[in-house]
Each structure stands twice: as C-alpha cells, then as structure tokens.
Design a protein around this nucleic acid. Structure first.
Lengths: 159, 159
DNA sequence: TATTGTTATACTCTATAACTATA
DNA sequence: TATAGTTATAGAGTATAACAATA
C-alpha cells in the first residue's frame, strides 16, 4: 500500500519531468529559430565558446556526432557568419574552427538567456525547496550513471 | 549576497535539469532505435494507444505537426506492421489509423518501460524528497505556463 | 598506416504549396 | 467552399562508405 503509493509518486515525478522537458525544449527551439539557429548549430556555438578554437574532429568527439555531420554544421554556421575555418597551424590536414565576433556575441547572449531562464523558473522557490529539487535531480543523475541503469535497459529490450 | 546565492542555486538546478534531460533522452532514443523505432514514430504509437483509432488530421493536431508529416510517419509505421490504414466508415476522404496487434503490444511495452524507469529513477528517494521534487517541477510548469514566460522570451529576442 | 575532413549517398523529420477526392 | 490526405519540393540533422591530403 505504502509501496504502491510511492510507485505512483514516482510516475508523477517522471511525468512532470517529461512535461517540463517538452515545454522547455519546444520554447527554446522556437527562440533559436527566431534567431535563425537550430538546436544543433547553437550547440556548436556553445561548445566553441567553451573550448575555444577547435578542429572538427574535436568537435565531432564532444558533440558525439560523425565528422561528416560536423562538416555540415560548420558549413551552415560559416554561411551565417558565426564561425570561420582557418588553416590549422600545426596540422595541414585539419582546419581550425573559431567563433567570429558575431558568434562570440551570440554565445554570450545564449549564456545570459540561460541565466535569466534559471532565475525565472527557480527564482520563486525558497532555498530549501530549491535545494530539494537540485539534490533530487542529482540523485536521478546518479541513478542514470549507475550500471543498474544499463541493466534496466537491457532487460527492457529482452522483453 | 543572499540573493546572489539563490541565483547561483537556480543556475545549478537548471543545469541539473538539462543534464537529466539529455542523458534520459539519449538513452530513450537509443532504446527505441534498438526496437527499430524513432522518437517521432513511438509518439504516434503512444498517441494511438491513448486515443484509439484516429484519422490523420486528428493525429496531426495532437502531434502539432503538419498533415503531410503524419502521412510519412504513418507510412513508416505501416511498413513496420505497427499500424494499419482502413477506410473511414463515415468520411470517404479520411482513413482511420489503428494499431495492429503488434503495435498495441509495443505500446503496452513502452508504458511498462516508463513505469519501470520511474521506479528506477525515483524509487530510492524517500517520500518527502520525492514530493519536493514533484512539487518543484510543478512550480516550474506553472512558471512555464505563465504570461511572464512569454515576456521573458520576447525580451531575450529584442536584445 | 592512421588520421582529417571531404564527396557521395541515403534515411528521417520537418515544412510549404499545389492538387484530388470528397463533404 | 472547406476539409482529408496525397504528390512535389526543399532543408536540416544524422549515418556509412570511399577517397584525397597529410601525418
């Protein structure tokens, strides 16, 4: 009975998580689109802002995407004037992808947007509630990183 | 000072939320792929399980996607034997999309997976922590539904 | 030999526009 | 005249495979 109750609460929590995720990611995609950006390209801009000028191989690794995919993303961003390719100083096979001034400005603006969003979403919660949410999500992250998560997924596929 | 502290906590919470979302959605996409499904097609299956046999227009409205897009998704699912199109009994323009037995089985299995996932992710939290997370996410959902969220987004785009 | 990034090809999701068959 | 679903066309993200230049 108690256990059943807890189980239904877990379902509720996951449902809330999915709803928050959906609404948030739709809104963010829409806002990026209004700036002429897609999610994938915005991610490249954010990664470049964090890592500094990088070759495409490094980008592919960080984005966990094929090198061919990076070619396309960088093509798009270069066309939009947000990044430039330059010859890699030490490896003539590679090119170095860097943010232009416009790209760096955009990256800063995305970071600022995120900060405002965080304050907007969580600013109304008092410290204890906020701490509870954050540490709850941390627990979830621990579960997601645990080997048991892999087992759960394997079991599901074997059913 | 106190305010600054709260602000950084809000950033932390949003960062956790994004990380949970990313890991979870990557894992789910991978699991669907192992079953030969994409996210978009799995959503159609879930919607059909919930709404029962539907015409494509209704699917387009619920999925918030163009009718043309539904054509493609249903084509794919029909090819995989998960849904069938049949003539609509009352409207000869429309077709009725229904889950096959295999489709219904898959839908049930997806629901079951989600329940297991919820228990796995949140089963370790005690009642109070779980309630705190759920109600925190509810507060976030309220903020996302508030007109102020629209204003925040408009301001960001005007910068 | 191995690696970097490209061309070639293909699939999925998405959209708009024009069209057919029906309502 | 309006609606349901299609064909036609296009763009973005993703992937694998083959290849050229370079390490």
């Amino acid at each position: 009975m108690n256990r059943l109750h807890n189980m239904s609460r877990a379902d509720d929590a996951l449902e809330r998580l999915f709803r928050v995720t959906t609404v948030l990611s739709d809104a963010m995609a829409e806002d990026l689109a209004a700036r002429g950006l897609t999610r994938a390209r915005a991610t490249v801009v954010a990664v470049l802002a964090r890592m500094g000028p990088s070759n495409q191989r490094a980008l592919a690794d960080v984005l966990r995407v094929t090198p061919r995919n990076v070619t396309g993303l960088v093509d798009g961003l270069e066309g939009a004037g947000l990044v430039v390719r330059s010859p890699h100083p030490e490896d003539r096979r590679a090119s170095l992808v860097s943010l232009t001034d416009a790209g760096a400005e955009l990256a800063a603006s995305l970071v600022e947007d995120e900060r405002r969003l965080a304050r907007f979403l969580f600013g109304g919660l008092d410290r204890d509630d906020l701490a509870a949410v954050t540490s709850g999500l941390d627990r979830v992250l621990e579960r997601l990183a645990a080997p048991a998560f892999g087992e759960l997924r394997r079991e599901a596929l074997e059913r």
